[in-house]
Each structure stands twice: as structure tokens, then as C-alpha cells.
């Protein structure tokens, strides 16, 4: 669409992409290389790239510990439910914001953003008190509901913005044919919003996967804890298990990478609003 595909433009873009990729990829590469080193060597000067004492022991240490594997299980479970619930709740809310004018809309819009402005650190004590009162302390439910609070504002804003880019005529067509609003939403708006849903879903997953403060505060037993807490448990009072921490982070990112690779296809240009009306 940008005119003829010229080879030198292609080369320029690839070079730019490769150079640009250093910024995100180099630190991760460094983390990856370090996860195979013995602890002291991680701080060696001059730094070593590939350790002579290269070892997969840090990875084995994690894989052989049922307690640590449980952290992964918990993180998956919680993230999964948070994604499912966030998507459904935010689609409904975004539909309201995008397709209706109603009293209080401005106030609600303001509120959804500003309620997140209270630093979580200050929320910690009253929030924990509330969770205890609701009998949710040390449950998955506490974390799932908490993460919904974090993810919904972005999800709603994004989905609203996204639905706003989809023409009203789309859903009106369904309703003229005798369909209900729910039908219009479910059969037309949701399928056309897939790229938006995927990005919101990715974001939600990351947010739930990576959260630390509440994961620690709202749980007390190790069988309820998540990967970020597990990583912090490797930071001792006196010394850190650097390589295991890094190995655990690398391991934690693999499934996310795979998910991401899988959902790639939804970013393909062409799944746009325009192409769906037949």
C-alpha cells in the first residue's frame, strides 16, 4: 500500500529492526547467559559471555522442586482466569461506553481512571483488611479479583477506543434484521475486535503474571503463591541465588512467549473492521 516494494527500503527496515531489537533483546540475552553461570561468575570482570562452568543446574534445581513448580501452576491458573473474566467484563463495559450516551458517563469514565491513582503501597493495609473481612485471604479468588481491578481500566479504555473505531452501522445492521443488542455485540463487534481483544488479553496476562506486592500480601502459604513471589524467595537475607532467580524468570517467560507466538496471527493486517462486512 505504500507504493512499490523497493528492495532498498526493505533492507533499511530490516537493518532498523535488527538495531532496534538490541534494546529489548540484549538485557534478556544477558539474563539468559547468566542463568547458566555459577553465582560469582555473574559478576566477573571482564564479563564472560559463555561460562566455562556452564551448567543447567539452576534449571534443574527449579524443575526438581515441587514447591517451585507449584508457583508456576498458581501463576497460570490465576492469570488464565483473570484474562477470561477481564475480557468478558470489559467487552460489556466498553459496549456501554462506546454505543450509549447516558447520565453519569463522564463521571464513570473519570472514576475508572482515577481510582487507580492511589499508590498500591498505601492501599495495602486497608485492602488486606477488606480481603480478610470478605474471607478471601490466602485464596486464588483474592488474587483474581485484585488483578481484575488492575486490568479492567486499561481493558475497558482500550476496548472502548477500539469499538469507537468500528462503525455504528455494523451493529445497527444486525438489530434492523431483528437481532438483539447482545447478538450485535457477540456476533459482530466481538469478532471484529479480535486484534484489540488479543492485545488486551496479552496485557492482562502479563499484568497478572508479573504482579508481586499483592501476590505476597494476600497469601500466606507457599502453596498459594505465584512465580514473582517465588523469585523473591530466592533473595535471601544475606545472599541471592542469582542464577536460580534468572533461570526461574527465563522459565516463566517461555510459556508467555509461546502464547504470544500463537496469537501473532491476530495481528495480521486485514482483520480490520472494513473487511468483515460481507
Amino acid at each position: 500500500m505504500y507504493g512499490k516494494k523497493k528492495w532498498y527500503i526493505k533492507m533499511l527496515i530490516i537493518i532498523a529492526l535488527l538495531l532496534g531489537a538490541l534494546f529489548p533483546a540484549f538485557p534478556i540475552l544477558w539474563m539468559f547467559l547468566n542463568s547458566f553461570k555459577p553465582n560469582p561468575e555473574i559478576f566477573a570482570w571482564p564479563p564472560t559471555w559463555i561460562s566455562k562452568a556452564f551448567s543447567i543446574r539452576p534449571y534443574l534445581a527449579i524443575l526438581q522442586s515441587p514447591e517451585k513448580l507449584r508457583f508456576f501452576f498458581n501463576s497460570y491458573l490465576i492469570s488464565f482466569f483473570v484474562v477470561a473474566l477481564t475480557l468478558v467484563i470489559s467487552i460489556l463495559a466498553a459496549y456501554a461506553f462506546s454505543r450509549f450516551e447516558f447520565p453519569g458517563k463522564g463521571i464513570l469514565n473519570t472514576m475508572i481512571i482515577s481510582v487507580q491513582a492511589v499508590p498500591p503501597i498505601t492501599l495495602l493495609i486497608p485492602y488486606l483488611g477488606l480481603v480478610v473481612t470478605l474471607r478471601l485471604y490466602n485464596t486464588y479468588g483474592a488474587l483474581i479479583l485484585t488483578y481484575l481491578l488492575f486490568t479492567l481500566p486499561y481493558a475497558i479504555l482500550m476496548m472502548t477506543a477500539y469499538m469507537n473505531t468500528l462503525p455504528q452501522e455494523l451493529d445497527e445492521a444486525v438489530m434492523i434484521d431483528g437481532g438483539s443488542r447482545i447478538k450485535a455485540l457477540w456476533y459482530v463487534l466481538v469478532p471484529t475486535s479480535v486484534p484489540g481483544l488479543v492485545s488486551v488479553g496479552m496485557y492482562t496476562f502479563m499484568r497478572a503474571w508479573n504482579e508481586y506486592l499483592f501476590a505476597l500480601t494476600l497469601t500466606k502459604t507457599n502453596d498459594m503463591r505465584t512465580v514473582p513471589v517465588g523469585i523473591s524467595l530466592l533473595m535471601g537475607q544475606h545472599a541471592y541465588e542469582w542464577n536460580q532467580m534468572l533461570a526461574m524468570s527465563v522459565m516463566g517467560s517461555f510459556p508467555v512467549l509461546i502464547l504470544f507466538l500463537f496469537f501473532q496471527k491476530y495481528f495480521i493486517a486485514g482483520m480490520t473492521a472494513g473487511s468483515v462486512k460481507h
Partner: peptide, 8 residues
């Protein structure tokens, strides 16, 4: 960078 928790 998105795939890692803040402490890491």
C-alpha cells in the same frame, strides 16, 4: 521486556 516481573 514485557514478560518479566518488576523485581527481576
Amino acid at each position: 521486556p514485557w514478560m518479566f516481573t518488576a523485581s527481576v
